[in-house]
Amino acid sequence: MAMFAFQLPDALAARFDAMAVQGRSKKLRELVAGAVGDATAVPATGLRRKSVKLTLRLKPEDMTALDAAARKEGMLRTDWMLALMRRRLFGRPKFGRKEELAFYAVQEELRRIGVNLNQIARAMNTAVMPGTVLTSEIRQVEDFRGELRAHVRGLKDAFQGNLDFWEVEE
């Protein structure tokens, strides 16, 4: 199956996400199928792997609490339950839509920093004259390195916070 990837300005992406309530991928598949005039190209069941259905019977107060917890995280109740189970069974994090969007923003910032570092390194390589010290450029590279480390620490903290959130105290 083909994979498409492209970038959008943050504001446009946020507007699209608000419209694509069932998820980006599903909405993009629908738009592409509509653009080429083939509505049958989008599978009715989506592209998910086969799964097994699990049914739970809950007391009304348990369902109310579950709905409130899921809503608080901006998740559907099924996604919330899956996140809890996967954390306990496999130790994997599961993020809600707002966390996913935050990670996309961090990814974009890290890309921007990488581009800036490449530009600085290129300028330093072409501007160096024998016996010359580029103090301000070296300081700027050090500043970018610090910023990059802070973003990486932020990612690590976010993942650990997600894992801690889903951890069940015993």
Rank of each mutant, 00 (worst) to 15 (best):
R87P: 03
T132P: 03
A127L: 07
V42L: 08
I113L: 05
R145S: 01
A39S: 08
V36L: 11
E109M: 05
E61I: 11
F90G: 13
A127H: 01
G37P: 01
F6Q: 07
A44C: 10
R87H: 10
S51H: 09
V141G: 00
P93Q: 00
G46D: 14
D62A: 14
V32C: 06
A2P: 12
L66S: 04
K94L: 09
S25V: 02
L134I: 06
R48C: 11
N162S: 09
L66W: 03
L89I: 03
L8Y: 01
M81C: 09
D157M: 15
T78S: 14
K72F: 12
N125R: 01
P93M: 01
N162V: 09
D157V: 06
D79S: 00
E73N: 13
Q107R: 14
R49M: 07
E137G: 06
Q22K: 12
G154P: 04
L101R: 02
L117T: 02
D10S: 03
F95R: 02
A65K: 07
I113M: 10
T64W: 12
M63K: 03
F4V: 15
A121L: 06
Y104V: 14
M3P: 11
V42G: 02
G96C: 06
K26I: 15
V42K: 05
L56D: 10
A105G: 03
G46A: 10
M129S: 04
L148S: 04
R57G: 14
G161A: 15
D143H: 11
A14W: 06
I120M: 10
E169F: 13
D79I: 01
L54C: 04
R86H: 09
T64D: 14
A70F: 11
E167S: 14
N125S: 05
A68T: 04
L110Q: 02
R49N: 13
P60T: 04
R29Q: 08
A150N: 03
L8Q: 07
R15H: 03
A150C: 13
T132R: 06
A150K: 02
S25A: 07
